[in-house]
């Protein structure tokens, strides 16, 4: 009968490293699967997002979101929500809440709101155009 082989401290260390690495692989693979982009799934609105991006992500017309924030539709506003919040002297959280409410009210069972008729848009002060790189 052969004696069971003894494992030295170095080999234990490698086994521990191997097992910990596999645990990391499994935990983060599960997390990746949980976060994986799914069609038609709403993702949380973040401060870096722009109105066109939120509109694109939530499949909501842009004018609904501009109206919710009392912004003019033209020119297309490419600023992030954090910049809009700063301009309107409000918190980013309140801007996000206003957008979430507008999105909720423009989806079934509610009818999609109509755009303001031309001339009736109530922009308090049109924001200045922001310089950008070549578009």
């Amino acid at each position: 009968m052969t004696e069971p082989r003894k494992i030295n401290w170095q080999q234990w260390l490698f086994i521990l490293g191997f097992v910990v690495s596999l645990v990391i692989v499994v935990v983060f693979a599960l997390q990746a699967f949980r976060h994986a982009p799914r069609p038609r799934a709403d993702e949380p609105i973040r401060s870096w997002m722009t109105i066109p991006y939120v509109s694109h992500s939530y499949h909501i017309p842009e004018y609904v979101l501009y109206q919710a924030l009392d912004l003019p539709r033209v020119p297309r506003d490419r600023r992030p929500l954090t910049a809009i919040a700063r301009l309107q002297k409000r918190t980013v959280a309140s801007v996000i809440t206003a957008l979430q409410d507008a999105i909720k009210l423009s989806r079934p069972p509610y009818p999609t709101p109509l755009p303001f008729p031309p001339g009736a848009t109530p922009p308090p002060t049109p924001p200045p155009a922001v310089p950008r790189g070549p578009a």
Partner: peptide
């Protein structure tokens, strides 16, 4: 769905390292 993609890529980077 960029936010979801970003979070997935962040997790996948750890999977690669693991």
């Amino acid at each position: 769905r960029v936010q979801a993609l970003i979070e997935t890529l962040g997790s996948l980077a750890w999977v690669e390292i693991g």
